[in-house]
Amino acid sequence: MREIHVSVIRDEVKRLFLEAAYVLPSDVKEGLIQGARDEASDLARSVLRTIAENSTVAAEGAFPLCQDCGMAVVFLDIGQDVRLAGGDLTSAVDEGVRRAYKEGYLRNSVVSDPVFERRNTGDNTPAVLHVRIVPGERVHITAAPKGFGSENMSAVAMLSPASGREGVIDFVVETVRLAGPNACPPVVVGVGVGSDFEGVAALAKRALLRPLGEPNLDERYADLEREILRRINALGIGAAGYGGTVTALSVHAEWAPTHIAGLPVAANICCHANRHVSATV
């Protein structure tokens, strides 16, 4: 049994959110630069270059990548041979978020209750926390701040099994078409297929964490990803929605077994600020 003090988790959460807010992952930046090479529209190409330039300015540390510094999504994979000591884990994660958003001059974008008061909590907590218990004695932490321009355009559908591959493709492409300029294209699309209602949304969210251009290991799903990407880029939306041939930088699909009666599918759209940073303690 390995003991890890929750303050270690807290400090790592803080460090990861600070990095995520200012430093665009290198795979995303490379995707933007490649997109500028591929793009047919002059205006959209100039937008792609401007977005890449924005990430260079942000990395200097004074201005975050986007004014929407996101809702703080945290993935924890906790080894079952770890004993967490020194307090409540959820509070430690929230404290890490609180410190990152305060010390990093990041925008607080969370309101208390969603329907009535909608009062800003003032510290961007609570985090959205996804915990898995895994073998081993380490803790893997991923910080993935999520902007809501793109989150608002995401969708889940409970398809019929007869819908099959074409049904999955049509649903995801239609979700991106309806998102249009709202989701800040070029987007990255996380696709979940299978599991159940809440499980498919979590699969789609996790799919966003995969590095750009790294296909699913199952060739059938890798092919599905390529076909969805091709269809999305034929929509004509382009960077910032100004019209163009690069609407998505990458499509990542994750799948899980499902019920005999179902074919759940989720499309979690992320803007080009696909922010996620991980660490293991």
Binding site: V47, T50, I51, E53, N54, S55, V57, A58, A62, F63, P64, L65, C66, Q67, G149, P181, C184, A239, A240, G241, Y242, C271, H272, A273
Partner: peptide, 13 residues
């Protein structure tokens, strides 16, 4: 008017 989404560090200047 539209400002491209995701160039907020540049717009701040």
């Amino acid at each position: 008017f539209g400002a491209a989404g995701g160039i907020a560090a540049l717009l701040a200047r």
